[in-house]
Design a binder for these strands. Sequence first.
DNA 1: TAATTTGTTTACCGATCAGTCAACAATGAT
DNA 2: ATCATTGTTGACTGATCGGTAAACAAATTA
Lengths: 167, 167
Amino acid sequence: MARPYSYNPETALEAAMHVFWRDGYDLASLSDLQNSMGIQRGSLYKEFGSKKNLFLMAFDRYVKEFVDPGIDLLTQSDGTGKERIGRFFDMIPEEERRGCLLCNSAAGAAGTDDDIRRVVSLQMERLRKAFEQALIKENTDPGERRSEAERLTQLYIGKRVESRAVV
Amino acid sequence: MARPYSYNPETALEAAMHVFWRDGYDLASLSDLQNSMGIQRGSLYKEFGSKKNLFLMAFDRYVKEFVDPGIDLLTQSDGTGKERIGRFFDMIPEEERRGCLLCNSAAGAAGTDDDIRRVVSLQMERLRKAFEQALIKENTDPGERRSEAERLTQLYIGKRVESRAVV
DNA sequence: TAATTTGTTTACCGATCAGTCAACAATGAT
DNA sequence: ATCATTGTTGACTGATCGGTAAACAAATTA
């Protein structure tokens, strides 16, 4: 009935995710994005609405692709909580200048944009709860469990952010 | 012999530091900067040369004003290493959306700008060494001391970055 | 084949960016 | 009072920003 798509929205979104990951929300220009995504300006806006909406969709994709597996590792994998947590931290790549899109966004756009802060905060909270769940067998005190989960979340953020500044 | 300055370069630099702290290197516009610094475009460039040089000078100022006191706390204050480290972390303000300029820069501009990455990395290294020194009495194994100092540095970064994403 | 529908392309918009520069102003020296 | 010196001002530049819209192209329907 109408002209068919000439691109795959999924792979285009994947490409956008990598641009935002590398450059951050503000530095990622529409020109960079459309080049990497292999589509033109008009198609990009028809499909994704706005730069911010494209970011939020790319962020969602990042969560599914990189955050969720980490959370599964903490909450569903075998072994003691300590083992799961060790496995989680072992998963962090060495020398990854891109860092983690979630952590980069926390330090970056989340500071000034309410919508982005909301989704970032949501994922940080998910991560903290996953640590908390992993600690259930190890530590029966809810208060201690929570503060230790907070520490572990902060340690994760610190590791990923630090890796961006390694000379 | 010539026209005298109508502004104080020190207070102008202080104002610039706060703009970079709040907005980050890229989002801080020359217009914002000159408004906050209370000087005009030409004077800004005559005094500071370029936006990046202004940032590097503002970053230096931040280090003197906020990083150095923390390092002094870790290396020169009274008590055991544990007490010093506790004092260091107690110094972190609650609910500070601005976070820490050093950590913000690590997650932000350091990822794409070599000069900024260099100065950020330098200060991260100073902080790590300060933790290491604070641990000397507590832990005599150099390897463990180093890895624990790395952990503490990452924990600090994580805490400051996380505070930017609190809803 | 003609009309309809919807994706694609690209020129264009006003705003803003970092940076420059020539006119102007305020001082001390002569 | 005039001149040399140097800080101050604000208009200006070319580039780029995010976003828009009209012309065009490719499919189905009639």
